[in-house]
């Protein structure tokens, strides 16, 4: 593979290492967006949309995934306003974060989007589907590394009624579209008894226009495989077994961290859920002694049902062994 990837130094320095203690349990771990978090190796978190050295490569990967399987972008008809709202909220956000490279300009009814990082420009009329083939979510997904889920709020619940998700960690946007928030999380162990999902939903339903929060979630992935969706499970499932005895385990096994932003969109009242995925191989993680020790402790202590749900069961012993052997 010759795709340019961020170098080790940058990847480690900007990695959102998610563990604040030596044990991990699900919690409603939300905090205000845009606050910089210092880590043992650098910092992360000063922005909502993050462009890094893998930008062009990840956008190209998303294009290929969508070409093979258009259901990764699923939108129920009533989410039309929310989809435009997400586009018209996040393109300006992107331009404000990278002003030298991107811009959004209004010319009468039309808006012009220019992105010099990938040499793209396009124009459209907000609210007019005919002006934008593919629709607002597809344009948005071609400009940001983040996956997007849009939650509608009605009948006292949130509903996952639209999304563009090509980098899912073992779930399927196409299957889940149209579910209540609590139903989407139905298969996750422990969180319901603990009230975590219910509390998260209550919190999200109270978000006011323009409010922005974030949380992190994590799992592990074999190889730098962003598309580890349920759809492609037949392609990657056996790697969970093969990696165990592979001498390349520390290079193949990655800590996968999702930085999830939660934004209340102003026009549509939808909650925009952005999922940005960062992958760091164990070998690079281990260059930071504190991370090496802590991740080994978290993995070793993690209850079996949580490890099983995250798909770690086959290789977590091997991972702990390698991390603690150094």
């Amino acid at each position: 593979m010759t795709t340019a990837l961020p170098g080790t130094a940058e990847r480690v320095a900007r990695f959102p290492f998610p563990f604040a203690a030596d044990t991990y349990r699900y919690s409603t771990n939300v905090e205000p967006a845009r606050r910089t978090v210092p880590t043992a190796a650098g910092s992360w978190g000063d922005r909502v949309l993050d462009v890094d050295a893998a930008y062009a490569a990840e956008l190209e990967l998303r294009r290929e995934v969508l070409q093979r399987d258009p259901t990764r972008c699923s939108q129920l008809p009533h989410m039309r306003v929310a989809a435009w709202d997400a586009l018209m909220t996040l393109l300006p956000e992107l331009a404000a974060t990278y002003p030298g490279a991107m811009s959004l300009q209004q010319r009468g009814d039309r808006w012009l989007w220019r992105n010099d990082l990938i040499g793209s420009s396009t124009s459209f009329v907000p609210g007019d589907e005919d002006s934008l083939p593919g629709g607002p979510l597809r344009l948005l997904g071609s400009q940001i590394q983040e996956d997007v889920v849009l939650l509608d709020q009605r009948e006292g619940s949130l509903w996952a009624d639209a999304g563009l998700v090509t980098f899912a960690a073992d779930w399927s946007m196409g299957f889940d579209v149209g579910m209540r928030f609590l139903e989407v999380h139905g298969p996750v162990p422990r969180v319901h008894e603990a009230g975590v999902v219910q509390r998260a939903e209550q919190f999200l339903m109270r978000l006011q226009p323009g409010e922005q929060y974030r949380r992190t979630n994590w799992t592990m992935t074999v190889d730098r495989r962003l598309d580890s969706s349920t759809e492609t499970y037949p392609e990657w499932g056996r790697d969970r077994r093969l990696v165990v005895d592979d001498p390349a385990l520390p290079d193949r096994l990655h800590l996968r961290v999702e930085v999830q932003h939660l934004l209340r969109l102003g026009v549509s009242n939808a909650v925009c859920f952005l999922i940005r995925t960062y992958l760091l191989p164990l070998r690079e993680l281990a260059t930071v002694p504190e991370w090496r020790r802590r991740f080994a402790a978290v993995l070793a202590e993690l209850p079996d049902d949580m490890a099983d749900y995250k798909g770690l069961t086959l290789y977590r012993g091997a991972a702990v062994d390698w991390l603690t052997a150094g």
Binding site: L76, F175, P187, Y233, R238, R240
Partner: peptide, 18 residues
């Protein structure tokens, strides 16, 4: 044990993928 109200269907995934 995951059901889509939209599809009226259970999710099935490859049993022996691993």
């Amino acid at each position: 044990g995951h059901v889509s109200r939209r599809l009226g269907a259970y999710l099935g995934f490859m049993a022996d993928a691993e």
